[in-house]
Amino acid sequence: MAIGQARSTGDKSKWAVANTVVLLYALIPVLWILSLSFKPASSITDGNFIPREWTLENYAQVFQVDLFTSALRNSIGIAIIATVLAVIIGTMAAYAVARLRFPGKKLLIGVSLLIAMFPPISLVSPLFDIWRGIGLFDTWPGLIIPYITFALPLAIYTLSAFFREIPWELEKAAKMDGATPLQAFRSVIVPLAAPGVFTTAILVFIFCWNDFLFAISLTSTSASQTATVAIANFTGASEFAEPTGSIAAAAVLLTIPIIVFVLFFQRRIVAGLTSGAVKG
């Protein structure tokens, strides 16, 4: 008994150490940015983790620039539209992949995996030319379309895993209860796949929100420039000042929506998937 307890305390402390290391690894850069964002320009390079003086000047400066506010609006709009569309298309495609037998199914899965593996950088210059040719350059759809394309494989893979978890008998039951395939899908399958849908939505949203490559290549004005691009375009107060403080503040501001988004949906993701559907 005593040995068992000693071992479990030992186990516990090992886990605690491991957890701390991982947490520090993940959080120190974030905290560092946070610390930078509260430092006045004079002490930004002093290397202190906890600022000696605190200031909100950097945040004020960020919003003084019109570019950032419009960029934030673009970011939110583009990310939400791309997420909604990708999840809707992805849900249907994933359902087909998980449940139906149709010719070319393997090809579809293969192609979507191929897209996921394709390096986006190689697409940027052709897209740039095409988008300019057909007038999509520097527009919202100009970014939404590539985002959907690159988010779909992720959405299909995540969602089809969730659909596979749902007992097929539920659908048969719905059919026997008189539902059309669409009714069965809408009132039985989708509610059950909700945790999967939300997980996918978060992943896709983060992908769109964080993208820099497409955003900087396919936009040029405040009409469609997103926040990540705006940050890169920050200039200091004078020509010679480094805008480090403002960039840090903007980066913190950019992180907040993601955290809110994840916290908001977290409970739904954790919620039991299909408990009680079949024998328990």
Partner: peptide, 10 residues
């Protein structure tokens, strides 16, 4: 139809 697994909508 009544299924072996009951197939109730959870």
């Amino acid at each position: 139809m009544v299924f072996q697994s009951y197939a109730l909508y959870p």
